[in-house]
Amino acid sequence: MNQKQPLVRMENIQKRFGKVRALKGVDFEVYDQEVVGLLGDNGAGKSTLIKILSGVYQPDGGTIYFQGEKVKINSPEEARQLGIETVHQDLSLVEKMSVARNFFLGKELTKEVGFIEILDLTKMNYECMRGLKQVGVELRSPTEFVSTLSGGQRQAIAIGRAVYFRARILILDEPLRNLSIREQRTTLNHIQEARNKGSSVIFITHNVYHVCPIADRIVLLENGEKLGEVKAGELTPEEIAECIATGKMIKEERKNG
């Protein structure tokens, strides 16, 4: 897999907030239809790294290549135009709006009436239900307010939206946090579904047990630096947790011993 050109490659990414160096030159790449776990303790720089990829932050140094081409991602709008869809922790849906209005936020469907461009609410409602059905999400009505839905349903809508817009890269920030066991399993299924439909997935978490069942590759961040990476099955979840706890990779030791 590593012989192929990565879909996105982030090189030597640096970011500082005041005196804090959140990222000290991180390399990170994602290949086609791959689920990458981005793992690290709180404050390791995971969220900062993906916020740079999703256009929320601008890096202080480093380069991003998208399909081999150097790009600058100046805003979430530009990230979405590249096909980078992000499900931020608690930040992807507006609770006081309907599901359908949320679903198409930033990419609203319109029709022309005379010279005026107006929202095509009929189509938005229909397409929203159709798009959600594709990832197996069941909702009573697209006009329901998001505030009335459970955490799992909200996560499903955010993921369903990314799949609907054919995300090249789907970034999920702690997608299983605050979900029940059953909702966690459903969300993992939605992520598989997204990958099967052609998306690459970046799965950010600090819980190794969340990401192990699904990731093809796990990248470990520690203190704003890349600690190392593990392919699926190379290490047990316990061993990976040990790497994070000690800040040392144990892959080499095991190979030698």
Binding site: P76, M97, G106
Partner: peptide, 19 residues
Amino acid sequence: NRVFATGGKKLAAYTMGVN
């Protein structure tokens, strides 16, 4: 639609590409 979103949850609107 973006007025509702911006007033309802500014950061969500922003991350969805709303100026």
